[in-house]
Design a protein around this nucleic acid. Structure first.
Lengths: 212, 212, 212, 212
DNA sequence: CATGAATGAGGTTTCATTCAT
DNA sequence: TATGAATGAAACCTCATTCAT
């Protein structure tokens, strides 16, 4: 996959007709299937198109190049996960710190596990596809959401600074990645989830001045 | 990790003679240079050989294929980092928990920052080259080392279980990756290091039963 | 001229209705625009259709294929130029040789310069589209016209033979092409025009037996 | 043939070994063969390589892209023709004007006819390959050569200005092109050659102040 | 042992053309 | 008639790997 200039990541045409929407959906899903069954370096645009039941030409009507296709899939996944986390943040407002963290972390772990296969598959492509930049952007939004939640915690004076939140989020994501890549058993997942909650709780507590 | 058979990753011949060692070293360093200057998908064996000042043919006498080359470089880096961490663990034995963690985390951050460029470059290839498996192996060793250190902590009854240590290590590595990929300022690094220490200390403390 | 069969170059349907004429006109003009703005090898039927404000499908209702489109545009241009030259020939009948030539050459240069952009654009496609054959046909007509004119020259016994006229016309066209492709200043054009007149006059004079 | 940026026309590597020289020669010749047998738009790099008896990869070791290949062939041809003309110019020094012109024109016509097939084939590609720019460059050299020759003419005071020489050369080239594209009989060629001599002689004479 | 020319499978992408709506 | 989504053959070009010198 040549990745010279990181340009033109935007999908080429917005699917207006019903037929188009179906096609785009099929391509997107096929991308994941191929990623899972063949691996990132065996993923070819031709194969994706075949799996999607369309011709390569059709694929290229919606994505200007291979990168943009992978980028779109990655972005979609990350956005989904983030949406889940954001929802949990909203519902956890005004609760005590520990509970907030628990809900947030559990939402994150569950969202990731929900489509563990996709997550793992996407780790492979993130690096080639402008992943870091995208992740940075997503993380910034996540951090703001979490920060806003923490502002409302019932038992602390002031929330930890942005810095600490960033650290926590990246630590959580990193641990999750390790876990996913190990192909864990359900039991392991359960236990890890608990530990991750503990990790974040203890760090946030340590990084926070208690409210009077 | 590509779906096909993971073929011989081991270097082809052990460099017994001085000349060979020099050549292998040059190739290894050239790989990193090319990774940094051209990116993972512009890295070609020919280019690496040129940069190293040898012919492609020569390169293939020391590495059976491209993967094995990248694998070796990755392994070398990880081993170096781990060696540093292990050394710090040894020297921190019998100290109190918090101090142990501090020394270990600081050793890790410093080792990573020491050749930040390499770390960043290698994140690109890890996925394609059997990285996860390798990391798993390395992490296991790390975990054992850390575990052994913790056994000797002067202020705790028993160390956290393997599980918690794994979580901590992967969280630390994940946060570090995020940091490195952001291309941080020295000030940011200092602050992050401190926070990472705090993260690990508070988690380990929380995961540990205090000694009588 | 490509080696394969020279298929139907004729437009598919004669535009009888006003709407059709407008459409065909728009497509024709769009072709030139695209030729100028994108170059011959970036000219796609889709792009031409877009520029013309119609769909590709519509384009294919008036032209059976891409070649026929380009051919039509080329033919149109050449025919226009020739019509101008023919007109000048008619009006120059019965004048002295030198004057005839001057009027003819000046008409040619002016006609070409009138839409210099088109001329230059079409040089790019002529070769791929059966240009030489077309030019041959056009040139034959031109030669006959010029010959007819020369027959009436007041100061010569008999006109130069067909051969000489062909040579003159192709020399004139060749020089003009060179000039156009250089993107000349108005001053250069004026001077070149004068020289071209001189070239043709001196050649025709040399190739002619003077009238008693 | 995509022709975006007109870059990197230079051959990729200079053939140092004997084997390489042979290969390059074969590719060059094969290009002309394919051009003649299939036409410019059926010329593919694969076909050229096949005809040359090498693999595509090899072709691309010597030419960075298709354009550069065609450009090299075109340049080679034009340089050859020009060398012949230059030689004739040198040998015609100090002779009378008419004789000079005769020798120069005849040298040109003969050089072109010598490999008429190549000339015709190359007209097809010139436009796509940066031909005009190249021709401009070649023409400038030609003009200087001719100018230098004319300076020494034994029977004229001063030579025609650059302008007139440019006109003459482009007219001559244009007429020649027309002739070649018509696929002329030997008789036609002979006659055309004579006419071309006359054309240039009469123009140069007309454009010159006679020497005392 | 070193060299580097040669290989060729295979990847990405384009675009003329069709045809169901 | 007009549309434009879909097609898919085919083009260009790369690069891991080999092997004769």
């Amino acid at each position: 996959m040549p990745a010279d200039a990181v340009v033109a990541f935007e999908p080429r045409k917005t699917p207006l007709q019903a037929r188009s929407t179906v096609t785009v959906e099929a391509i997107s899903e096929a991308t994941i299937q191929v990623l899972l069954s063949h691996g990132a370096d065996r993923l070819t645009t031709t194969r994706v198109a075949q799996r999607a039941g369309v011709s390569v030409g059709t694929l290229y009507q919606y994505y200007p190049n291979k990168q943009s296709l992978l980028f779109a899939v990655l972005e979609n996944h990350l956005t989904n996960v983030m949406a889940t986390v954001e929802a949990s943040c909203e519902s956890a407002c005004h609760k005590p710190l520990a509970e907030m963290i628990r809900e947030m972390v559990e939402a994150f772990v569950d969202a990731k596990m929900d489509r563990a296969d996709i997550s793992v598959a996407l780790y492979q492509v993130a690096a080639d596809v402008g992943g870091p930049a995208l992740i940075k952007r997503i993380n910034q939004r996540s951090r703001k959401t979490v920060e806003a939640m923490l502002e409302t915690a019932s038992d602390i004076k002031s929330p930890p600074d942005k810095f600490a939140i960033d650290i926590m989020l990246s630590a959580m994501a990193g641990a999750m990645r390790s876990l996913l890549e190990a192909g864990p058993s359900p039991a392991t997942v359960r236990k890890s989830r608990e530990q991750l909650v503990l990790l974040c709780q203890s760090y946030m507590t340590a990084a926070t001045a208690k409210r009077v």
